[in-house]
Write a protein that binds this DNA or RNA. Structure first.
Length: 283
DNA sequence: ATGTCACGTGAAACGTGA
Protein backbone atom coordinates (compact mmCIF):
# COMPACT_ATOMS: atom_id res chain seq x y z
CA UNK A 1 0.00 0.00 0.00
CA UNK A 2 1.35 3.38 -1.01
CA UNK A 3 0.55 6.29 1.30
CA UNK A 4 1.34 9.91 0.47
CA UNK A 5 0.90 13.41 1.88
CA UNK A 6 1.15 16.66 -0.06
CA UNK A 7 0.48 20.28 0.79
CA UNK A 8 -0.69 21.36 -2.67
CA UNK A 9 -1.09 25.10 -1.90
CA UNK A 10 -4.48 25.36 -3.67
CA UNK A 11 -5.95 22.19 -5.16
CA UNK A 12 -7.58 24.17 -7.96
CA UNK A 13 -4.44 25.89 -9.16
CA UNK A 14 -2.43 22.66 -8.65
CA UNK A 15 -4.79 20.48 -10.68
CA UNK A 16 -2.41 20.39 -13.69
CA UNK A 17 0.27 18.97 -11.37
CA UNK A 18 -1.92 16.87 -9.07
CA UNK A 19 -3.63 14.71 -11.68
CA UNK A 20 -0.45 13.65 -13.55
CA UNK A 21 1.21 13.03 -10.19
CA UNK A 22 -1.63 10.68 -9.15
CA UNK A 23 -1.23 8.86 -12.46
CA UNK A 24 2.54 8.57 -12.16
CA UNK A 25 2.95 7.71 -8.48
CA UNK A 26 -0.32 5.80 -8.12
CA UNK A 27 -0.70 6.27 -4.36
CA UNK A 28 -3.44 4.25 -2.65
CA UNK A 29 -4.08 6.78 0.12
CA UNK A 30 -3.37 10.52 -0.24
CA UNK A 31 -3.51 13.20 2.44
CA UNK A 32 -3.81 16.69 0.95
CA UNK A 33 -3.48 20.04 2.70
CA UNK A 34 -4.19 23.65 1.79
CA UNK A 35 -6.82 22.77 -0.77
CA UNK A 36 -8.10 26.35 -0.33
CA UNK A 37 -11.56 25.36 -1.53
CA UNK A 38 -15.04 25.17 -0.04
CA UNK A 39 -16.59 21.71 -0.11
CA UNK A 40 -18.90 22.90 -2.92
CA UNK A 41 -16.03 24.21 -5.05
CA UNK A 42 -13.97 21.06 -4.39
CA UNK A 43 -16.94 18.92 -5.50
CA UNK A 44 -17.33 20.95 -8.68
CA UNK A 45 -13.66 21.04 -9.66
CA UNK A 46 -11.93 18.01 -8.11
CA UNK A 47 -14.42 15.22 -7.43
CA UNK A 48 -14.81 14.27 -11.09
CA UNK A 49 -11.18 13.86 -12.20
CA UNK A 50 -10.15 12.22 -8.92
CA UNK A 51 -13.08 9.78 -8.73
CA UNK A 52 -12.31 8.91 -12.35
CA UNK A 53 -8.96 7.64 -11.11
CA UNK A 54 -10.63 5.25 -8.69
CA UNK A 55 -10.47 7.24 -5.46
CA UNK A 56 -13.07 7.73 -2.78
CA UNK A 57 -12.79 11.23 -1.34
CA UNK A 58 -13.31 13.03 1.96
CA UNK A 59 -12.79 16.79 1.70
CA UNK A 60 -13.02 19.19 4.62
CA UNK A 61 -12.79 22.70 3.28
CA UNK A 62 -13.49 26.25 4.28
CA UNK A 63 -12.76 28.33 1.19
CA UNK A 64 -9.95 30.80 0.87
CA UNK A 65 -7.67 29.28 3.52
CA UNK A 66 -6.77 25.84 4.85
CA UNK A 67 -8.75 22.82 3.67
CA UNK A 68 -7.70 19.16 3.88
CA UNK A 69 -8.65 16.00 2.04
CA UNK A 70 -8.23 12.24 2.05
CA UNK A 71 -8.24 10.22 -1.17
CA UNK A 72 -8.30 6.44 -0.99
CA UNK A 73 -8.71 3.47 -3.27
CA UNK A 74 -8.38 0.96 -0.43
CA UNK A 75 -11.61 1.97 1.30
CA UNK A 76 -12.63 5.17 3.06
CA UNK A 77 -15.02 4.77 5.98
CA UNK A 78 -15.94 6.41 9.28
CA UNK A 79 -14.99 9.89 8.09
CA UNK A 80 -14.57 12.50 10.83
CA UNK A 81 -14.02 16.17 10.00
CA UNK A 82 -12.01 18.20 12.48
CA UNK A 83 -10.75 17.18 15.92
CA UNK A 84 -12.59 16.54 19.19
CA UNK A 85 -12.77 19.81 21.16
CA UNK A 86 -10.86 21.53 18.36
CA UNK A 87 -9.69 24.98 19.43
CA UNK A 88 -10.99 28.10 17.70
CA UNK A 89 -9.05 31.01 16.24
CA UNK A 90 -10.77 34.38 15.89
CA UNK A 91 -14.03 32.80 16.97
CA UNK A 92 -14.21 29.91 14.53
CA UNK A 93 -12.77 26.47 13.86
CA UNK A 94 -10.54 26.10 10.79
CA UNK A 95 -10.66 23.17 8.34
CA UNK A 96 -7.35 21.54 9.31
CA UNK A 97 -7.99 17.83 9.95
CA UNK A 98 -9.94 14.99 8.37
CA UNK A 99 -9.78 11.37 9.49
CA UNK A 100 -10.95 8.11 7.93
CA UNK A 101 -10.25 4.40 7.98
CA UNK A 102 -8.38 3.40 4.81
CA UNK A 103 -6.90 -0.03 4.20
CA UNK A 104 -7.19 -0.93 7.87
CA UNK A 105 -5.42 2.21 9.07
CA UNK A 106 -6.90 5.19 10.88
CA UNK A 107 -5.49 8.02 8.79
CA UNK A 108 -5.64 11.74 9.60
CA UNK A 109 -4.66 14.41 7.08
CA UNK A 110 -3.51 17.45 9.07
CA UNK A 111 -2.63 21.05 8.32
CA UNK A 112 -1.16 22.28 11.60
CA UNK A 113 -1.50 26.05 12.19
CA UNK A 114 1.56 28.04 11.09
CA UNK A 115 1.86 30.11 14.28
CA UNK A 116 3.12 33.18 12.36
CA UNK A 117 5.49 34.46 15.08
CA UNK A 118 6.08 33.26 18.65
CA UNK A 119 4.45 36.41 20.08
CA UNK A 120 1.35 36.17 17.85
CA UNK A 121 -1.94 34.75 19.17
CA UNK A 122 -1.74 32.25 16.32
CA UNK A 123 1.26 30.65 18.05
CA UNK A 124 -0.74 29.74 21.16
CA UNK A 125 -3.49 28.49 18.87
CA UNK A 126 -0.91 26.25 17.18
CA UNK A 127 0.08 24.70 20.52
CA UNK A 128 -3.54 24.18 21.58
CA UNK A 129 -4.33 22.62 18.21
CA UNK A 130 -1.42 20.19 18.52
CA UNK A 131 -2.67 19.19 21.98
CA UNK A 132 -6.15 18.53 20.53
CA UNK A 133 -4.53 16.36 17.85
CA UNK A 134 -2.61 14.44 20.51
CA UNK A 135 -5.82 13.88 22.47
CA UNK A 136 -7.52 12.48 19.38
CA UNK A 137 -4.69 9.97 18.89
CA UNK A 138 -4.76 8.88 22.54
CA UNK A 139 -8.52 8.32 22.18
CA UNK A 140 -8.01 5.83 19.34
CA UNK A 141 -5.90 2.79 18.55
CA UNK A 142 -2.40 4.23 18.32
CA UNK A 143 -1.03 1.02 16.77
CA UNK A 144 -3.02 1.47 13.54
CA UNK A 145 -2.86 5.28 13.46
CA UNK A 146 -1.28 7.37 10.74
CA UNK A 147 -1.03 11.15 11.12
CA UNK A 148 0.28 12.72 7.94
CA UNK A 149 0.49 16.26 6.72
CA UNK A 150 2.03 19.69 7.04
CA UNK A 151 3.07 19.84 10.69
CA UNK A 152 4.59 23.33 10.33
CA UNK A 153 7.33 22.11 12.71
CA UNK A 154 10.89 21.12 11.87
CA UNK A 155 11.51 18.30 14.38
CA UNK A 156 15.24 19.07 14.82
CA UNK A 157 17.85 21.54 13.59
CA UNK A 158 18.79 18.94 10.95
CA UNK A 159 15.38 19.64 9.41
CA UNK A 160 16.13 23.27 8.46
CA UNK A 161 18.68 24.52 5.96
CA UNK A 162 20.26 26.99 8.38
CA UNK A 163 19.27 26.91 12.06
CA UNK A 164 20.76 30.41 12.52
CA UNK A 165 18.14 31.85 10.17
CA UNK A 166 15.30 30.43 12.26
CA UNK A 167 16.34 31.61 15.73
CA UNK A 168 13.22 32.99 17.46
CA UNK A 169 11.05 31.91 14.53
CA UNK A 170 8.14 29.52 14.53
CA UNK A 171 8.67 25.93 13.31
CA UNK A 172 11.73 25.41 15.52
CA UNK A 173 10.83 26.72 19.01
CA UNK A 174 11.10 24.29 21.93
CA UNK A 175 7.36 24.39 22.82
CA UNK A 176 6.42 23.39 19.25
CA UNK A 177 9.00 20.63 19.17
CA UNK A 178 7.84 19.43 22.60
CA UNK A 179 4.23 19.35 21.36
CA UNK A 180 5.35 17.28 18.37
CA UNK A 181 7.36 14.98 20.65
CA UNK A 182 4.28 14.55 22.88
CA UNK A 183 2.25 13.61 19.80
CA UNK A 184 4.88 11.06 18.79
CA UNK A 185 5.03 9.75 22.36
CA UNK A 186 1.56 8.31 21.82
CA UNK A 187 3.39 5.72 19.72
CA UNK A 188 3.97 7.36 16.35
CA UNK A 189 7.21 7.07 14.36
CA UNK A 190 8.58 9.70 11.96
CA UNK A 191 9.22 7.09 9.29
CA UNK A 192 11.06 9.33 6.81
CA UNK A 193 13.65 10.39 9.38
CA UNK A 194 13.90 6.75 10.52
CA UNK A 195 14.72 5.76 6.94
CA UNK A 196 17.17 8.64 6.34
CA UNK A 197 18.72 9.24 9.78
CA UNK A 198 21.60 11.47 8.66
CA UNK A 199 20.58 12.73 5.22
CA UNK A 200 19.58 16.23 4.19
CA UNK A 201 15.88 15.64 3.59
CA UNK A 202 13.54 18.58 2.99
CA UNK A 203 9.88 18.74 1.98
CA UNK A 204 9.33 22.52 1.68
CA UNK A 205 11.27 25.26 -0.05
CA UNK A 206 10.18 28.91 -0.13
CA UNK A 207 9.24 30.09 -3.62
CA UNK A 208 11.56 33.07 -3.22
CA UNK A 209 15.26 33.51 -3.73
CA UNK A 210 15.87 30.31 -5.65
CA UNK A 211 15.60 28.34 -2.45
CA UNK A 212 14.62 25.09 -4.14
CA UNK A 213 17.40 25.33 -6.70
CA UNK A 214 19.90 25.79 -3.84
CA UNK A 215 18.18 23.12 -1.71
CA UNK A 216 17.60 25.61 1.10
CA UNK A 217 14.49 24.04 2.57
CA UNK A 218 12.85 22.57 5.62
CA UNK A 219 11.35 19.20 6.53
CA UNK A 220 7.95 20.07 7.95
CA UNK A 221 5.72 17.55 6.15
CA UNK A 222 5.72 14.33 8.14
CA UNK A 223 4.22 10.86 8.03
CA UNK A 224 3.81 9.65 11.61
CA UNK A 225 3.02 5.94 11.86
CA UNK A 226 1.78 3.75 14.69
CA UNK A 227 3.46 0.43 15.40
CA UNK A 228 1.60 -1.56 12.76
CA UNK A 229 2.30 0.64 9.71
CA UNK A 230 5.74 1.63 11.09
CA UNK A 231 6.70 -2.04 11.10
CA UNK A 232 5.65 -2.46 7.49
CA UNK A 233 7.58 0.44 5.91
CA UNK A 234 9.36 -0.65 2.74
CA UNK A 235 10.20 2.81 1.41
CA UNK A 236 9.87 6.40 2.65
CA UNK A 237 10.97 9.35 0.54
CA UNK A 238 10.32 12.89 -0.62
CA UNK A 239 9.11 13.24 -4.19
CA UNK A 240 11.30 16.21 -5.17
CA UNK A 241 10.34 15.84 -8.82
CA UNK A 242 6.90 17.26 -7.97
CA UNK A 243 8.59 20.48 -6.74
CA UNK A 244 10.33 21.00 -10.12
CA UNK A 245 9.01 22.36 -13.39
CA UNK A 246 6.24 24.87 -13.95
CA UNK A 247 3.57 25.73 -11.43
CA UNK A 248 4.69 23.57 -8.49
CA UNK A 249 3.49 23.75 -4.91
CA UNK A 250 6.12 25.06 -2.50
CA UNK A 251 5.88 21.63 -0.78
CA UNK A 252 6.88 18.25 -2.21
CA UNK A 253 4.88 15.07 -1.54
CA UNK A 254 6.08 12.54 1.03
CA UNK A 255 5.59 8.94 -0.10
CA UNK A 256 5.60 5.85 2.14
CA UNK A 257 5.21 2.28 0.87
CA UNK A 258 3.90 -0.33 3.31
CA UNK A 259 4.25 -4.09 3.02
CA UNK A 260 0.75 -5.46 2.52
CA UNK A 261 1.47 -8.89 4.01
CA UNK A 262 0.38 -8.97 7.64
CA UNK A 263 2.75 -10.34 10.29
CA UNK A 264 3.29 -14.07 9.93
CA UNK A 265 1.89 -14.14 6.43
CA UNK A 266 4.66 -14.94 4.02
CA UNK A 267 2.39 -14.37 1.08
CA UNK A 268 1.03 -16.87 -1.39
CA UNK A 269 2.91 -20.13 -1.37
CA UNK A 270 4.42 -20.51 -4.76
CA UNK A 271 5.31 -24.06 -5.78
CA UNK A 272 8.93 -24.57 -6.81
CA UNK A 273 9.39 -24.00 -10.48
CA UNK A 274 8.90 -27.20 -12.40
CA UNK A 275 11.29 -28.22 -15.06
CA UNK A 276 10.13 -26.34 -18.09
CA UNK A 277 8.77 -28.56 -20.77
CA UNK A 278 11.15 -28.76 -23.64
CA UNK A 279 10.04 -26.89 -26.64
CA UNK A 280 9.84 -29.01 -29.71
CA UNK A 281 12.84 -28.53 -31.88
CA UNK A 282 12.24 -26.71 -35.02
CA UNK A 283 13.63 -28.20 -38.11
C1' DA B 1 17.41 41.15 -2.11
C1' DT B 2 11.51 41.73 1.79
C1' DG B 3 13.68 38.11 -4.45
C1' DT B 4 7.08 34.20 -4.94
C1' DC B 5 2.83 32.49 -4.99
C1' DA B 6 -2.47 32.30 -4.32
C1' DC B 7 -6.78 34.39 -3.10
C1' DG B 8 -10.42 38.06 -2.81
C1' DT B 9 -11.84 42.40 -4.21
C1' DG B 10 -13.57 44.24 -8.24
C1' DA B 11 -11.95 45.48 -12.69
C1' DA B 12 -5.82 47.22 -11.44
C1' DA B 13 -3.26 47.03 -7.97
C1' DC B 14 -3.32 45.94 -3.12
C1' DG B 15 -3.99 43.45 1.46
C1' DT B 16 -3.38 39.03 3.66
C1' DG B 17 -1.23 34.69 4.57
C1' DA B 18 2.39 31.52 3.93
Amino acid sequence: MRLATWNVNSAKSRLPRLLPWLDERAPDVVCLQETKLSDADWAAELDGPIAERGYEIAHHGQGRWNGVALLSRVGLTDVVRGLPDEPEFDGSVDARAVTATCGGLRVTSVYVPNGRTPDDPHYGFKLRWLEALRRQVTGGDAATTVVAGDMNIAPTDADVWDPAVFVDSTHVTPPEREALAALQATGLQDVVRDRWPTDRVFSYWDYRAGRFHKDLGMRIDLVLCGADPAGRVEAAWIDRKARKGSGPSDHAPVIVDLDDAPDGDIGPVVPPPSTPAKLPNRT
